[in-house]
Design a protein around this nucleic acid. Sequence first.
DNA 1: TATATTTCGGATAAATAAGTCTGTTATGTT
DNA 2: AACATAACAGACTTATTTATCCGAAATATA
Lengths: 144, 144
Amino acid sequence: MFSQAAKYAIKSIIYIWTQSLEDRKVGVKEIASNIGAPEAFTAKILQNLSKANFIGSVKGPNGGFYSDESHAKVTLKDVIKLIDGDHLFSGCSLGLPKCSEKNPCPLHFEVVKVRKEIDIMLTSKSLKHLAVEVIKGLTQLNQI
Amino acid sequence: MFSQAAKYAIKSIIYIWTQSLEDRKVGVKEIASNIGAPEAFTAKILQNLSKANFIGSVKGPNGGFYSDESHAKVTLKDVIKLIDGDHLFSGCSLGLPKCSEKNPCPLHFEVVKVRKEIDIMLTSKSLKHLAVEVIKGLTQLNQI
DNA sequence: TATATTTCGGATAAATAAGTCTGTTATGTT
DNA sequence: AACATAACAGACTTATTTATCCGAAATATA
Ligand code: FES
Ligand code: FES
């Protein structure tokens, strides 16, 4: 459903939020180890997220990544679109040139329902909110 | 959502059904051209489908692929599982080692809802039924 | 039996995704 | 100013997916 890169991106941002909510900036090494992802690959992804202004970053000693109110409106959907493109949200799931009600593929009408649910999943809660749930112990980013 | 191979597989089987319902066996060339897929790759996929008994095949002149009542219970879900594995239906969408209510990732409860809808999409109508809809002109496998 | 047709099976090639490495730039500390 | 730290940028490697190629096996027809 999501690419590896997108999974790491989502977990990274949520982890960064959990730390930013306690005013801690975090480095690649810490992020990667806490979400169970390869360090170098995570670094590449964080750079993209930073360039897209989905997170903030500061170079140098005591630098690292962070999230603040200027990033609070970024949704999971934004992240997926940035990294995986929008094939999950638009275009024909069976690969027909156009997805439409007029010329629907055999799965079209069911795909529409699935996409509605996917949209809810990726837009109903903010990344910050998801981080709060992690802090509360309701959900988690890593298992031993 | 689906791999290229899975898309071609789905379209191939539905196309084969549309022809089998009129007692016509079809060859790779005809299938590939009617679903807009590369011929050699389609051939490979058809071999897998045949080996898994999701379709029937006959070698030699007047041979080709077909579907009959012995294939009528194959679902879209079976096809996806064969070709893409079951990552769409089980396992954590964010890549955690285990997907469970006890140790849920931040997306778990929403993922469950999406998966329910995906399951409906892939099991509610038989491939044969989908073929009938194509025959009736309600849906289509290819656009010009 | 010879031939043409069509699937089967495995090897190979090309494209994309996943992941690594290495040097550069910015910045805080001494 | 010199140094250490940590993000940035781009080239590189590896793995997987997508796609092609070619010969072997099966089978209908002449
Ligand atoms: S036409 Fe295929 S999903 Fe809409
Ligand atoms: S734990 Fe992640 S989807 Fe269930």
